[in-house]
Amino acid sequence: MGHRRHPWGTLLLLLPLLPAAQSPAADTSKLTLELERLEQRIAEERKSWFEFKLQAKSEAERAELNAAFPRDEFVAELIALARQGKATDVAARAWIDVLRISGWVEDRELHSRAVECLLAEHVTSPHMGTLISMLLYGAPAWAAPVAADALRKIMAANSDAGMRQECLAELALLLGTEATFGEAGRTEAEALLRRIEAEFGDTDFNAMTGRQFAAGARNESEHLRVGQVAPDFEVNDQDGLRFKLSDYRGRVVLLDFWGFV
């Protein structure tokens, strides 16, 4: 993962490595340590459990496995820590962890509870960057409206100009490309892109100018949104054979954009 046109694309790999921002208001080092130990236990538990889940053959089996993960116990511990560290960095992190667990076990109720709590109590926190990437990267399609709502709230309340700018850009992309927002979403996306052109047109806008970003986002909304026929291409494969994407009409195709790290 390296050079990318949008720096926050690199967040995919970097986020887990970022040091947690510390709240200067309270000494939370003890709580942080506790949280880290708990996170470690959760990660260990998840590892073996997820191996099983990958091998599940049916929805029933998946549901059974989802129910078998000791979520209640972990969530209770996380929430207890969040209460002790109320309004601090520890609480934000703990709720982010709850959100993560809700994704693993596909618990939408827990998912919205975590998002609501994060937006209600931590909307000004630097951890909102993590929330955004969790709601956007690798997120299920049903989470798109949740993500849009979160982006609007963070954009309105967070004091970090970079974060607000990221929200603006991501919101424009999301509304313009997800089927669920329909025509109204695309209209709003266009208005946001105009705003980006007006406010950031010539300034450095995440490794490109705002105008370039807007042009790219329009292309994405027009040609790459869900429901559009994928743009055809003709290229060589690894054996030097030429082929077209349209050669595969009649088949389900998964395009995997990747590279050796």
Partner: peptide, 18 residues
């Protein structure tokens, strides 16, 4: 394809629709 990093996936149906 507006790839901003990887992994990134597009799932297409038999008509080539995203």
């Amino acid at each position: 394809w507006a790839v901003r990093g990887f992994p990134q996936f597009y799932l297409l149906d038999e008509q080539g629709v995203i």
